[in-house]
Design a protein around this nucleic acid. Structure first.
Length: 441
RNA sequence: GCGGGCGUCGCCAAGUGGUUAAGGCAGCGGCUUGUGGCGCCGCUAUUCGGGGGUUCGAAUCCCCUCGCUCGCCCCA
């Protein structure tokens, strides 16, 4: 009998990690709330056509990375590879766009059928925002700023923001015909991947990592030279606003991104710490997408952060600075009290006490083992609790429980008798005592 | 999808054809039937990712397969 395993590239998030996810989510939600961004939850499964039409038939994501299958009604379904298409579909379908601009966020799993490697899984998680109906270039800076400030607040170090302008649709059409004409006359100098893209998706040739292709491109027509005056102004405004916000950025004219729906501003936030999968946040403006999916012509911009990659960065930052924000996020919350208990009556009382103390807001671990006091103290110590609360036959007969401090940095070393008695029927003073100690922690 | 590396207990590992598969950490029990952080003692892999094969004999060699990992591609 072979061991049952999760599917390739599908990863369990275990209890030793989930608190990190929760901490990140809590901080992100707080940023969104303060920016007036509301949550939207859309299905994980959508019709294949949504992504094919939204992301673009010729993209890699649609062409070779989708988790698609036929359901029992022979409909082609796809596990969402990204969030934007679903959000746009939901906004159109539910008439949200008739209610003015929509500032939305989402979080959840995404699926791409790829070979797993560092920072890349088949099921991964994104948290993202989409601003629908907001076409001003100030919105571009605001949206980028939200990502930048969130990452900063999470204590992540060494990030680089790169931006580019892809112009509008006409700009790109003009560029494409110039570029294709030029590149076709140099086709034998291109790398294999780029050669295939000349017809299907020529813009992607620009960000090829192939050295030969890159040096060839030095002589090719440039996208930025095809931008209209309006597009150029828009792009320089975005830069101006980013400077106002003190957000450092680099212009990368080769940044085109792999999804077809982007217009004007495209951006990525990367870290060299992530190896080959360097992008932790990617996004851009998509002014045509809503119309293309059947909605009213509506400008929009958004981004997504990859949570697994973000967590890699937070762990790195925590190593570099064990006292910093990132380290704080990673830290497991220790119990306030560990209840050492033994004997029938004492164990009954301990159960009741644990509930009362938890109701009072304390984090309480109850020892279930009935094993020797020595063993229980050892576990109490390992749990990291500040206090041990001791209940045995003796305490039951006297009606006085014992509260013992386990942290010598607070209450002197072990040889001193750092135990206090408390009345088992009066928990008020006990709780007060413990609450005070938490201020020391 | 393509190329390189790897896969021995929950974790870190030694072992590269020969009778019982080191060790450390963690866990559990004891020394100490009521007091922790130290110490000592004991227990914890019929089995080396899985399946086949070669051999008197395989964790060690061969084939297949699964998974992880690094790079390509792509993206978060």
């Amino acid at each position: 009998m072979s061991q049952l395993k999760s599917l390739r590239g599908m990863v369990d998030v275990l209890p030793s990690e989930t608190h990190i996810w929760q901490a990140i989510e809590a901080i992100a939600y707080s940023h969104f709330r303060r920016a007036g961004i509301s949550e939207i939850r859309t299905p994980i499964l959508e019709s294949t056509e949504l992504f094919a039409r939204g992301i673009g038939e010729e993209t890699d994501v649609v062409g070779k990375e989708m988790y698609s299958f036929l359901d029992r009604g022979e409909r082609s379904c796809t596990l969402r590879p990204e969030g934007t298409a679903s959000v746009v579909r939901a906004a159109i379908e539910n008439g949200l766009l008739n209610k003015g601009a929509q500032k939305l966020w989402y979080a959840g799993p995404m699926f791409r059928y790829e070979r797993p490697q560092a920072g890349r899984q088949r099921q991964f998680h994104q948290i993202g925002i989409e601003f629908l109906g907001l076409g001003n270039s100030r919105n571009d800076a605001e949206v980028i700023g939200i990502a930048w400030n969130l990452l900063k607040d999470l204590g992540v170090q060494g990030l680089v923001l790169e931006i580019n302008s892809l112009g509008n649709n006409e700009d790109r059409k003009e560029f494409r015909s110039k570029f294709v004409a030029w590149i076709e006359s140099h086709i034998e100098e291109l790398d294999n991947d780029s050669r295939k893209r000349v017809r299907s998706n020529p813009l992607r040739i620009i960000d090829s990592k192939d050295k030969g292709t890159q040096s060839l491109l030095a002589h090719a027509p440039k996208l930025k030279d095809s931008l209209s005056e309006e597009s150029k102004t828009r792009f320089s405004n975005v830069q101006k606003y980013l400077k106002d916000l003190d957000i450092p950025f680099k212009i990368n004219n080769n940044l085109v991104r792999g999804l077809d729906y982007y217009d004007h501003t495209a951006f990525e936030i990367t870290s060299h710490q992530l190896g080959a999968q360097a992008t932790v946040c990617g996004g851009g403006r998509y002014n045509r997408l809503i119309n293309q999916l059947g909605g009213p012509s509506t400008p929009a911009i958004g981004w997504a952060i990859g949570l697994e990659r973000l967590i890699l960065l937070i762990k790195n930052a925590s190593k570099d600075d064990p006292k910093g924000k990132a380290a704080h996020l990673i830290e497991q919350k220790k119990p306030d009290i560990y209840i050492v208990n033994r004997g029938n009556e004492a164990e009954r009382k301990a159960l009741v006490l644990s509930q009362h103390l938890r109701s009072a807001g304390l984090k309480v671990e109850l020892d279930y083992s009935s094993s020797a006091f020595g063993k229980q103290f050892k576990r109490a110590d390992r749990s990291g609790a500040i206090w041990a609360l001791v209940l045995g036959d003796e305490e039951i007969s006297t009606g006085q429980g014992r509260l013992k401090c386990l942290k010598e940095e607070y209450f002197g070393d072990k040889s001193k008798n750092n135990e206090k008695l408390f009345n088992l029927d009066d928990l008020e003073s006990l709780i007060t005592e413990i609450d005070q100690s938490k201020k020391l922690n």
